[in-house]
Each structure stands twice: as C-alpha cells, then as structure tokens.
C-alpha cells in the first residue's frame, strides 16, 4: 500500500504541471485569437525566408 504514497503525489504533480502549462498559455495570449492560430500553423514563410546559406545552426541560437 505504500506505493500509493508515491503514486499519488506523482499524479497530483503531473496534474499541476498541466495546470501551470495552461496558465502559461493563457498569460502568453494564446487564447486571444483562436481562429488565426489554427491557420498560422500552416504558414511556411519561416522556411522560405531563410536562404540556404544562412541556415541558423543550433549552437548559434
């Protein structure tokens, strides 16, 4: 039965992580335009705009 004492805080912690993520979404304005965001996913200008020579390497960021 001692396993419950470990599992329960774990479950609660996961739930809290979800809640905090939700608050973060809310604060960063992700709920202010529900229609536009859906379309923005499909935009690929972030690929087109960077010419092959200027590819940003991970360590440069």
């Amino acid at each position: 039965m001692n396993i419950i004492l470990i599992l329960f805080p774990l479950a609660l912690g996961l739930g809290l992580a979800g809640l905090i993520a939700f608050f973060w979404c809310l604060r960063s304005g992700q709920y202010s335009d529900l229609e536009g965001s859906g379309w923005r996913v499909l935009e690929d200008d972030d690929i087109d705009n960077s010419p092959p020579a200027a590819v940003v390497l991970p360590e440069q960021r």
């Binding site: 479950a11 609660l12 739930g15 809640l19 939700f22 608050f23 809310l26 709920y31």
Partner: peptide, 20 residues
C-alpha cells in the same frame, strides 16, 4: 482570463478527485 483560470483550477481538481 480570471474566469478561464477558475475553469482550469476546477477542472484540474475535479479530475484528480475523481481519480481518488
């Protein structure tokens, strides 16, 4: 936004209590 926060907290609590 406050109301949405209430919804989030209540949803989180409802799910965890239901687990128990």
């Amino acid at each position: 936004a406050q109301l949405l926060r209430y919804v989030g907290v209540a949803g989180f609590a409802a799910m965890n209590i239901m687990l128990l």
